[in-house]
Write a protein that binds this DNA or RNA. Structure first.
Lengths: 224, 224
DNA sequence: ATGAAGCTACGTTTAATGACGAAAACAATG
DNA sequence: CATTGTTTTCGTCATTAAACGTAGCTTCAT
């Protein structure tokens, strides 16, 4: 869902819509004056909304206000929006590519000398791969950006570097609606029980390899 | 998220609010007549909204309509709601409740003797709380079920028990579109740097308390 | 202290909402 | 085809949102 709808919904359902408008205006750090200037109306109008003199603002006003807040933030560089809805490029993805045909997961795991830690079989096929820096991804991706990991096909294998216990990546997958066909940890410190449990629950094979990211990148590219 | 807010937001932002009202009324399988009867108004009013004669309905009207749709569905057994808001009970949630008014976060943190590990201020208000078993939640909730943590307001404080490094809960929050107003770890083993970093990125105060879950439950309930 | 910036309060105007009800158009369905 | 339920259209009226502008109040930096 996009942020405008979320804000508009909150304002509409709130017992005190004016207060909620104020909350969001302040969240975006826009003064009544700035907002009024942007909308080319008098600042007192904004005050009237927020103070509740206008008890039931129409959807048109709300839409204008909400859109204005978002647009003002975008003009300023989208600082607030990024917290909800980030759209910035990221260096967390090390490599990503898709195949035009199915590739046997079993074969891939053999080529990268992988060990399966989960009880899920490898009898499936992939159509793409993503190599991602686990820590950077968690830090820089917002919810919607997680879809970036999935390229054109969700039938893919995701490699994570910088893994400590191996819990974080599996939790991200657990919480996200898109599921990969397999997960591989690149040189993890160790593998926590919870990571394996989550893999089993999600029916996703959890593999570990001791090759490094550049080597894997080369191998995966050679399969095109 | 609260389904009412979602619907209201969609209606407000839509280029044609009337059509969106109709879409939802039909989704709930409520006739204009039934809706009008429930609201004790004339059915022509509903038609006027939907056809667009009333171009900018106020929040009061929208709220009434949306609430009516939800309440009518509940009276019928909540068949439609269940599709959006699956309502399975879960033993991962230890306690959950909402307030009818704003409560100062600062005050709450003082009452539970909390320590703020993040650099985010406590100058905000909450409208509800959830106490949840961190491990059980991760294991038993699917993506859509995470909304359960949010009760009726997303303006809430979420307490996690069974926290080891404190990374998992923050990652779940990071990946999920709904954000709480504050996160509290109940007697964590320790606090990882990444957890604090995530809290800062998400603009969510990260608090630690040494009180136990039953004590917190009692304190939070006393604020009603 | 003296602006400047931000917000509130209020009187006023106009256009639109929120509502009614009657009549008409449309579907189903016995 | 007659009946019942659903929706649309429209004329009408009271209320109120949407906007203005001015005056007044804080707060804060010069």
């Amino acid at each position: 869902m996009d942020i405008q709808e979320k804000i508009a919904g909150e304002i509409t359902i709130a017992e005190n819509p004016g207060e909620t408008i104020r909350k969001w205006r302040e969240e975006f750090q826009v003064s009544q004056l700035d907002l009024a200037r942007y909308l080319e109306i008098s600042p007192s109008v904004i005050s009237d909304y927020e103070s509740g003199r206008r008890k039931s603002p129409g959807v048109t006003s709300i839409r204008k206000i909400v859109n204005a807040l978002v647009e003002i933030d975008l003009k300023r560089g989208g600082q607030v929006l990024r917290r909800y809805n980030s759209g910035m490029p990221s260096d967390a993805i090390i490599d990503i590519s898709d195949y035009s045909h199915d590739i046997s997961l079993e074969r891939v795991i053999r080529m990268i000398s992988g060990t399966n830690y989960s009880s899920i079989g490898l009898n499936r096929y992939i159509r793409g791969y993503t190599i991602v820096d686990g820590i950077k991804a968690i830090l820089s991706f917002s919810y919607s950006e997680y879809s970036k990991l999935y390229g054109w096909s969700s039938q893919r294998i995701i490699f994570f570097t910088e893994v400590k216990l191996g819990r974080s990546p599996m939790i991200a997958i657990r919480v996200h609606p898109l599921k990969p066909a397999a997960v591989v940890y690149i040189q993890p410190d160790r593998i926590d029980d919870l990571a394996v449990k989550l893999a089993d629950v999600e029916n996703i094979p959890l593999i570990v390899t001791e090759l490094d990211a550049p080597a894997i990148s080369k191998i995966m590219a050679s399969l095109k």
